[in-house]
Amino acid sequence: MPPKSAPAANAAPSSAVQTLWKAYNDSTSDRLKFIDAFLVFLMLSGIVQFAYCVLVTTFPYNAFLSGFGSTVGQFVLTASLRSQVNPENKNEFKDVSPERAFADFALGSIVLHFFVFNFLG
């Protein structure tokens, strides 16, 4: 997610972005960084698909929707997983242990991709 902050802050002094980047690097565990890398990949994939849809063609609209829905859905499910396993949110998710969070994530992804696959063609 951090790269997204770059366009939002381009008007601000670049020091603010640098502070953010530094704070992020310092205070985030490797596990969360790994999840973040996946999130960035998903976002790039979604942007490419969307650009293709806008610039080239929407023709198999259901295929586009399922592909785009797959990235968006996977993104939010992963982001949910990230916030559930984030130690800072521990008091918010009292009933969701990290293992439970991963099981939920896996189940949600399976259901999501079942529908994606069904809608694809």
Binding site: L65, S66, G69, S70, V72, G73, V76, L77, A79, S80, S83, Q84, N89, E92, F93, G108, V111, L112, F115, V116, F119
Partner: peptide, 16 residues
């Protein structure tokens, strides 16, 4: 974050 998790998972899967 609970709202985020609940709503996002519902909307992403539900809409598709």
């Amino acid at each position: 974050s609970r709202l985020y998790v609940a709503y996002s998972s519902w909307y992403a899967i539900g809409t598709l």
